[in-house]
Design a binder for these strands. Sequence first.
DNA 1: AACGTTGTTGTACGACTGTAAAACAAATAG
DNA 2: CTATTTGTTTTACAGTCGTACAACAACGTT
Lengths: 220, 220
Amino acid sequence: MTRKAFQRLSEDTRRTSLLEATLACVADLGLNGASARRIAERADVSAGLLRHYFPSKDQMIRDSYAYLIGQLTGDAARAADQKDATPEAALAGFITGNVTPPNLSSLKLSLWATFIGRVRADPAFADIHRDSYREFLEILEGLIHPVLLAQGRPTDPASCQRLAIAVNGIIDGLWLEGSIEHGLYNPNGLTEIALSACEGIIRLPETTLTRHLAPRTKRT
Amino acid sequence: MTRKAFQRLSEDTRRTSLLEATLACVADLGLNGASARRIAERADVSAGLLRHYFPSKDQMIRDSYAYLIGQLTGDAARAADQKDATPEAALAGFITGNVTPPNLSSLKLSLWATFIGRVRADPAFADIHRDSYREFLEILEGLIHPVLLAQGRPTDPASCQRLAIAVNGIIDGLWLEGSIEHGLYNPNGLTEIALSACEGIIRLPETTLTRHLAPRTKRT
DNA sequence: AACGTTGTTGTACGACTGTAAAACAAATAG
DNA sequence: CTATTTGTTTTACAGTCGTACAACAACGTT
């Protein structure tokens, strides 16, 4: 009996590797099939090691949820960060970034949904969700406010929040439908639908957002 | 050792009871904790009985998903079925029905999300989802079309579908956010936000839909 | 009232679960 | 080169899992 050869990794590297293996297993097998042994196997590591990095399997799952959420909101926020952009272009970029890859992804949707399903019964998941949702809303309000200002529209906090909630709603909804590969329509047109819908929700003049629609990549 | 007294129920009654016990367990404990024994206990039945009604636990879970979806779309469609309603009132009723109880429910959201998380990896779940989604879209197109007609607007299938996709998106998104009890805002205002947003998305004149907002029930 | 059908219970089994803890070896320091 | 630390593997264990099946009892039939 010869032991398996192994490498000692830095805490961060190993931890991240374990979290990603956890997410991969949850996406493929669900919370049900994502057992400690299977996660360890996916990370090419023995099962006992998990407990060296996480106090329990439940905690590891929770940490992997926080890790995923960090990726999602990070990618979305980055999409709005364009240099020298008008307020309209920044908003359009944020919306677009949320309904196109890498955020538009059936894998990420699977994970997100699986975890959202635990929010009601598990306070730890609820905390993570609430924080990320609040952050998303704040980003959106911060993007909508200057657009209203530039259009000479009222910018009281109540209207701003209502618009942010609505825009957040349609972003979530279209992201959801577009990420599930149901084959019922072409997700390439999703960006235009999203921009046009947000124009309508905020009552912006036509083409205020849709003019920032990136030309579709041609396919032969 | 005396055996437990029991009653023989009709196939439908027992089957429904088992499906509801399954949903209750999944909502509380997740797909992880919803074991056959726990489901049986919730249905006040021995564990062995499950296999008498379902060929496997997996199939029972799938059936419970279809059962849930049937409830959701059924309730939603019923909300749009108002006698002698104008096209605008019917559409407003459908939208409202989707962002108010009983459809607005953290329990139903939990279940829905948990199952959606399996759509990507399990073809059986994907089939159920696709069918229900298509049905939802068709209902929506059927409600939007007469509204466009009454407003003297173009009603080509492509525009109709685009609008249905967008409206479906915001309904899903707002239902989602409203059902999670995050405590970040009052879900009572959700109906107005939804109706107003849909007005904007479809480019209807102001108050076309919001005038059908039911007066809020007063609280002391 | 006795019978037959079958919905329902109880038990058993091997596989798998999360976790604990001892044995080991890879990297680091001296 | 040796000693030390500790990340990693291995083994072990009690509990739970989904499932199979035999025993049983509730109900419909006669």
